[in-house]
Design a protein around this nucleic acid. Structure first.
Length: 941
RNA sequence: GCCGAUGUGGUGAAAUGGUAAACACAGCGGACUUAAAAUCCGCUGGAGGGCAACCUCCUUGCCGGUUCGAGUCCGGCCAUCGGCACCA
């Protein structure tokens, strides 16, 4: 028996047929403002998928999950009267094509084109309603011309005092020097230490390094100083946090971004250096979030790489320096040698080891002392690798009593610990209950011994004398505790701050510092500037040349700048990028050489959604009118946008969570720069974001080749058809949820589609399908009408909520009801097919066409996708009677059918008359009767 | 360690504070068939009682609270998954 005969309906015939029709008739071409068929009276809806990297493995079942969701939304919105923009494209620069080129010598462009062709074929076989005329490809020179152009905008902009990007020409007009201007560009060159991955032969952004290994490939990454292009994303840190507020994104993703940007408020405090007792003008500035604990600062730590370390290090150990402070034995001789040794040890540790060894603290004393500005105490200055050069000022004041890390460090090196915040009772109870306090409280002969626990029971936190005892004990024995107290409380041992709550003490401390010129309140961010260059071949070359050690942009007229033709794609093995091999290309002019780095893969994906608005524009990265319309919905192209409905332009963006702090942050940054410079109309790119959940293998594990649990969508399409694949992926469960694949589940929805098919079609003994005789031009009876209108209502509502699984189950209920009817009313079935069409477009179109052949006036004349979404009739949903549930004391005891118009009193009467209700009332009078009309009666006795 | 999400039948799941388990999968039984597949119809959370129609009790990770009524709201705990992690 051939598999062809086993098919429950001939999807393999009609699916390709409809795909061909849609393509031939450009059924999903979306006109732009200015096109003859553009209808300005309709609202717009921009629904976007995260465009794929066209890998050699082809489509994965995870791709169609999000793509089907957006396809249903897009088709539904189109039927609901929207101009829908639903495009697709290729994020095609990237490492795999380049590595394949290194192995085989095949040019990455060849590989990429083949993969794109394969992806296109696969996506088209799923019947997605994309406007293929708007297809974009980041490796297309017509596309990356504008990626390079946007880079030049970044290069030629700076962030002004108003926090917004401005053209660099403003600084030139102010007469700033070349060096000062270069210092302010949004794209700038830096010599800072970067993440170098020897195996990949490239540097990576912080976001691309996971646990000290490359995100791609999992190779070790080391820190080394290199000259690199950076993008000043930190200048937008505050806005990137603030402007999340107006977006309809999952709170968890917003939080991920907020945490990644990592804003914290505190103060910069200057500490003077006092070497061997003689004051010196040199200062160290630290960042702290707890200026209220200044009185508890008993030492200082600089990051090992901190530039002041060499300046302050003493030439010999101060008298009485404990041996433990001097580092390993081999380095005992002088502070300088100890520092040098410690730095070597630190550098030898990879990032990974540094994280793993985070538990044991290490460090060496510099031999130098600083002066605590609040009390003029001399405190030792250390270097330790638990202080990072990249955060704050690379220097801290250490308050062991109130910081876990400082506490651990101080205990190890026996540095004093002075509490300056009062812990709360629970903390003492949890960490010190057993401690014994010896005291002679009432002048008695013998010392009294109390445990802290007993003291607390006596009311140590409320009785002044006991509290004083407890705090004195804490002050003297702080180092004996197991943990530091890092919460808030009331200041003690803190001079002018005593008695203040932490919040108040912070304010006062900052005020005091500012008055004395010793510091000021500041905000700090964890976010680092974005390392933007890569030592790769297959990426956008920078439109930059170097001459006399200075960089400058090439003219816009020279864009796109194509990569050179290379035979040999191998990395050079050194940080010298592969483009250096193209010696002719490199030589820009007699005296100028091209920049050899390329842009990271993120560059192309930072703005592709904008290109979709006007993908074939050769004059501009996106046309003014197209951008204005698709991003804001406005057709007023002349005036300034005054009151935007929402900050983001794309109405719905669906994709995985893996881009939470990468693409989604980078794209927001670029968009804001373009917005500041007046090139786009909205401050944010994506108004609503939805994350689809990962699809696991049938075994509940993540799909992977090594586990052998990968499901290939092509196989599913061959066996069950595209509609079944689409429907199954939507029926599996809520879109956002992680869920395992089930082939049995695919069969389930396949059977449902076959049932729909048989509502219209019947098969004869030869296996030939023809239109069913049960299908007739008759009005639907009351029951069928109700089922149909309930389905119209629920599906419409559920699609808006992206609750596709429940919409499908409603269509199943409706189909089951229709299957049970002897005569199938053709008109009602056509309406049902309209509802089904966004989900299973091929089947719906085919059945509509079949019905049209017999009942031309009942079926849609053209594509169902050009039809209007049906309206439900509320009257059809109402029944004459409803079932009302009777409860006694909240327990279900009886039910009855009651006329829909019955009053509360009437329903109550019926309920109390029920024999079952009376039985459970046990003759007691009703204390209270709750009547919810149309639902239930609850009798309380 | 910190932050977030989730916890309901054998399975995927559903349920504006109002009949827990819709819809589907798997399983069982029946019809059709020489037979099988396909299709159609029915049953299917647990314990107990009844010849039976049916009845009673229990059940949404655990403990408590609010409420006439809690899977849903509040407080505490446990488990699983995901993210961050020496960020001063």
């Amino acid at each position: 028996m051939s598999s062809e005969q086993r098919k429950a309906f001939p999807f393999s015939e009609f699916e390709p047929k409809w795909q061909g029709e849609w393509e031939a008739k450009k059924a999903f071409r979306t006109p732009n403002p200015g096109d003859a068929d553009f209808d300005a009276s309709k609202p717009k809806y921009f629904v976007l998928d995260m465009f794929p990297y066209p890998s050699g493995n082809g489509l994965h079942v995870g791709h169609p999950e999000g793509y089907t969701a957006t396809d249903i939304i897009g088709r539904f919105k189109k039927m609901s009267g929207f101009n829908v923009l639903h495009p697709m494209g290729w994020d095609a620069f990237g490492l795999p094509a380049e590595q394949y080129a290194i192995k085989t010598g095949t040019h990455p462009r060849v590989t990429t084109e083949a993969n794109v062709a394969n992806f296109t074929k696969q996506l088209k076989s799923l019947g997605f309603a994309y406007d293929w005329d708007r297809e974009v490809n980041t490796t297309d020179p017509g596309y990356f011309k504008w990626t390079q152009w946007i880079f030049l905008k970044l290069y030629n902009s700076y962030v002004g005092d108003d926090g917004k990007a401005h053209p660099i020409s403003e600084l030139e007009a102010q007469g700033l020097s070349r060096e000062e201007i270069d210092h302010r560009r949004l794209a700038y060159v830096s010599e800072a230490p970067v993440n170098w991955c020897p195996q990949l032969g490239t540097v990576l952004a912080n976001e691309e390094v996971v646990d000290g290994k490359s995100e791609v490939g999992g190779f070790p990454v080391e820190r080394r100083p290199m000259r690199q292009w950076m993008l000043r994303i930190t200048a937008y840190a505050q806005r990137l946090i603030d402007e999340l507020d107006g977006l309809d994104w999952p709170e968890s993703i917003k939080l991920l971004q907020r945490n990644w940007i990592g804003r914290s408020e505190g103060a910069h405090v200057k500490f003077e250096i006092s070497e061997c007792g003689t004051r010196n003008a040199e200062c160290i500035t630290v960042f702290t979030t707890r200026p209220d604990t200044l009185f508890g600062a008993t030492y200082m730590v600089l990051a090992p790489e901190h530039p002041l370390v060499d300046v302050i290090a003493a030439s010999e150990w101060p008298a009485n320096t404990p041996d433990a402070w001097k580092g390993d034995h081999s380095a005992l001789r002088t502070p300088h040698s100890a520092i040098e040794h410690y730095r070597k040890q630190t550098a030898a540790k990879s990032d990974l080891e540094r994280t793993e060894l985070a538990k044991t603290k290490s460090g060496v004393f510099t031999g130098a002392y600083a002066i605590n500005p609040v009390n003029n105490e001399r405190i030792p200055i250390w270097i330790a690798d638990y202080v990072l050069m990249g955060y704050g000022t690379g220097a801290i004041m250490a308050v062991p009593a109130h910081d876990e890390r400082d506490f651990e460090f101080a205990k190890k090196f026996k540095i004093p610990c002075i509490p300056v915040v009062t812990p709360h009772a629970n903390w003492f109870a949890a960490h010190a209950s057993e401690f014994v306090i010896t005291t002679n409280i009432e002048n008695s002969e013998a010392d009294l011994k109390w445990t802290v626990g007993e003291l607390l029971k006596q009311g140590a936190m409320t009785r002044a004398d006991l509290k004083q005892m407890l705090l004195a004990f804490y002050t003297n024995n702080c180092a004996a505790f197991k943990v530091a107290y890092s919460d808030e409380g009331v200041a003690i041992n803190s001079g002018f701050l005593d008695g203040l709550t932490t919040a108040k003490a912070k304010e006062e401390a900052i005020k005091w510092l500012e008055e004395k010129g010793l510091g000021k309140g500041t905000t700090n961010f964890k976010l680092r500037d974005w390392l933007f260059s890569r030592q790769r071949y297959w990426g956008e070359p920078f439109p930059i040349v170097w001459e006399n050690g200075q960089h400058r942009s090439i003219p816009e007229s020279e864009l796109p700048l194509l990569p050179p033709t290379l035979e040999d794609f191998k990395p050079t093995g050194t940080p010298e990028p592969p483009l250096s091999k193209a010696t002719d290309w490199v030589q820009y002019s007699a005296t100028a050489k091209r920049e050899l780095n390329t842009m990271p893969q993120w560059a192309g994906s930072c703005w592709y959604y904008l290109r979709y608005c006007d993908a074939r524009n050769s004059e501009r990265f996106v046309g003014v009118e197209a951008e204005r319309y698709w991003m804001t919905g406005s057709t007023d192209f002349k005036s300034e946008i005054s009151n935007l409905k929402s900050p983001g332009g794309v109405d719905l963006y669906v994709g995985g969570t893996e881009h939470a702090v990468l693409h989604l942050l980078y794209a927001r940054f670029w968009h804001k720069v373009l917005f500041d410079l007046g090139y786009v109309s909205t401050p944010e790119p994506f108004q609503r974001l939805v994350n689809q959940g990962l699809i696991l293998g049938e075994d509940g594990q993540k799909m992977s080749k090594s586990r052998g649990n990968v499901v290939n969508p092509d196989d599913v399409v061959r066996e069950y058809g595209a509609d079944a694949l689409r429907l199954y992926e939507m029926f599996m469960g809520p879109l956002e949820q992680v869920k395992p694949w089930s082939m049995k589940g695919v069969e389930g929805v396949y059977r449902f589609l076959a049932r729909v098919w048989r509502l219209v079609m019947e098969v004869d003994d030869e296996g030939v399908w023809s239109i069913s005789k049960a299908l007739q031009d008759v009005p639907a009876n009351k029951q069928l009408t109700k089922a149909l209108h309930e389905t119209i209502k629920k599906c419409g509502e559920d699609i808006e909520k992206l609750s596709f699984n429940t919409a499908i189950s409603q269509m199943m209920v409706c189909t089951n009801t229709f299957t049970g009817a002897e005569v199938k009313p053709a008109g009602a079935i056509v309406t049902f097919l309209k509802v089904l069409s966004p989900f299973a477009p091929h089947l719906a179109e085919e059945l509509n066409a079949q019905i049209r052949a017999k009942f031309p006036n009942l079926a849609a004349p053209g594509f169902l996708s050009d039809e209007t979404w049906p309206k439900y009739d509320p009257a059809a949903l109402i029944e004459d009677e409803v079932e009302v549930v009777f409860q006694v004391n909240g327990k279900l005891r009886d039910k009855a059918r009651v006329p829909i118009q019955a009053t509360k009193e009437e329903i109550e009467k019926i309920a109390l008359a029920s024999a079952r209700v009376q039985e459970f009332m046990e003759g007691k009078p009703a204390k209270k009767v709750i009547v919810v009309p149309g639902k239930l009666v609850n009798v309380v006795v």
